[in-house]
Nucleic acid binder design. Structure first.
Length: 453
RNA sequence: GGUAACGUGGCGGAAUGGUUACGCAGAGGAUUGCAAAUCCUUGUAUCCCGGUUCGAUUCCGGGCGUUACCUCCA
């Protein structure tokens, strides 16, 4: 469609019209997981948000014009710590968590990004970037550590609205004897024998956090690209440091043009975080809910707002999808979604606005023609919903059933006999028994049907 | 302390300088042995105080409240 895409840009803090550097080669880099622990639903939010942005960009510019890069950080102090705690090797841990992460992505019905580079496959270019930074006097070595010299980058703090004086005044920055200044951050550090290491001009060691994203975005998207995404908590210091490294090493004016940050999932209004101990794992939902339910729940609030989590939300989304599946038809032909219907998504990924559109299309489809149903189904599919057959949706629900189908049918027959004798007391008793087991009875057009509640 | 974001009906949640989505729950009705499901109808809101304006929930200033970031975090 010809309408413009708008995005809230954290750099500047305003909603802006999206103008790509090259509309045939659009680049989006999103910070992926550090693979040290099971993914939780807070991690799920950016997966869904940027999957949607990927879809919207492809819709406007063509599927071949958009490159989506999402990294896997598989070397980090948290990983080292976690592997020691779990008493397994680092590679066993990172491979295992990466596998779980991919399963969760699939469960959430997220498309596979164009590239998914790993940090450990990119140590050489990281070392090269450090060399460039040292050459440009943006980094210095001290006692086998390499640090980025923040004072030499005048734009530092622009993304996060911080100035150096405040940072130092806050003085929560880690003090280290090796640093020239407390705000400096590490690019390379030496490893002990029991820690992973790579040889470098500064001895055996490993990269600091932040560097992998600067290097891998450069590798696939170039020195300056269109969109950089991630959770709000990455703005400082992670993204601020990425900008500093990339701009100084690549000698450019800009790193990413648009910075898009999703807000948090909260529980009782408090941020869900591992350190808070209030996380809900994605895998916790796999048995009870189809992945689409979680996906819809994550889209029920605009990405820039906090999303307060509760079970009522999941149940509501489950019911909505159940209702929507009544109008689902497989679509084999190409159907264009009306520009006006698509508009909320183009306007800064307004998912609640688009969900309202889906409700309208559903109302029309429900008593409408096959074409109305096809339009509705296509619109759902566009945001990754109703992407599997109704049979599959139903069979998922059946897997949690405590009664066999045969038992249910027997009970229904028993109840119908009672009804014929006008023994409504017994009939209602049987109905309530089934209801307790999650089976809902409906007498419709002279027939009795059952559903899973 | 510094820097931001947010405050919309019973709940969730968009949008908007004037006509005020959408979902859930509620109420009434159709239907039903009674229900359920479905359908129809329907009520209810913009934290407080100033300012700008013919008009502000929307813009500006102040206040109150909530949250986040400044340390690992999506």
């Amino acid at each position: 469609m010809n309408k413009d895409i708008f995005l809230s840009n954290s750099l500047g803090g305003k909603k802006e019209k999206f103008v790509p550097i090259d509309s045939k080669k659009i680049g989006m880099y999103v910070c992926g997981p550090t693979v040290y622990d099971d993914p939780h639903i807070g991690n799920a939010r950016p997966l869904v948000v940027f999957d949607l942005l990927f879809k919207v960009l492809k819709c406007k510019y063509g599927s071949k014009s958009v490159t989506y890069v999402r990294n896997i950080t598989d070397i980090d102090d948290k990983i080292i710590k976690s592997s020691k705690e779990k008493n397994i090797s680092i590679s066993e841990l990172t491979l295992n968590i990466t596998k779980k992460f991919h399963e969760d992505c699939k469960y959430l019905n997220c498309e596979i990004p164009t590239h998914e580079p790993k940090a450990t496959d990119n140590i050489e270019p990281m070392i090269n970037m450090i060399k460039e930074l040292i050459k440009g006097k943006f980094a210095y070595e001290n006692n086998k550590h390499i640090y980025f010299k923040v004072k030499n980058f005048s734009d530092y703090g622009k993304l996060s609205n911080k100035n150096l004086d405040d940072l130092i005044a806050g003085s929560r920055v880690e003090l280290s004897g090796n640093k020239d200044s407390p705000e400096d951050f590490v690019l390379w550090k030496p490893s002990n024998d029991d820690e992973p290491s790579w040889s470098s001009p500064w001895g055996k060691g490993r990269p600091g956090w932040h560097l992998e994203c600067s290097v891998m975005s450069k590798k696939y998207l170039g020195n300056t690209f269109d969109i950089h995404g991630g959770g709000r908590d990455l703005i400082f210091p992670h993204h601020e440091n990425e900008i500093a490294q990339s701009v100084c090493a690549n000698k450019t004016k800009k790193f990413a043009n648009y910075w898009v940050h999703n807000n948090f999932i909260t529980i009782s209004k408090e941020k869900m975080a591992k350190s808070q101990g209030n996380i809900l794992k994605i895998s916790d939902y796999k048995k009870k809910y189809n992945g689409q339910v979680l996906r819809l729940a994550l889209m029920s609030t605009h990405y820039s707002q906090p999303l307060d989590w509760n079970d009522k939300l999941m149940d509501e989304c489950n019911r909505t999808l159940d209702k929507w599946y009544n109008c689902f038809v497989p679509v084999n032909k190409k159907i264009l979604i009306d520009d006006n219907d698509l508009k909320p998504l183009y306007d800064d990924l307004n998912t609640p606005g688009f969900i309202a559109v889906l409700h309208k299309l559903f109302d029309k489809a429900k008593d409408g023609t096959l074409e109305d149903k096809e339009i509705f189904s296509t619109a759902c599919k566009f945001i990754g919903l109703l992407d599997q057959s109704k049979d599959k949706w139903d069979s998922f629900k059946k897997q949690n059933l405590k009664l066999s189908e045969n038992d249910i049918l027997k009970k229904i027959e028993e109840r119908n006999k009672a009804r014929d004798k006008k023994d409504y007391e017994l009939a209602d008793k049987i109905r309530n028994e089934l209801l307790d087991k999650g089976i809902l009875i409906e007498d419709k057009d002279g027939k009795t049907i059952w559903k899973i509640k």
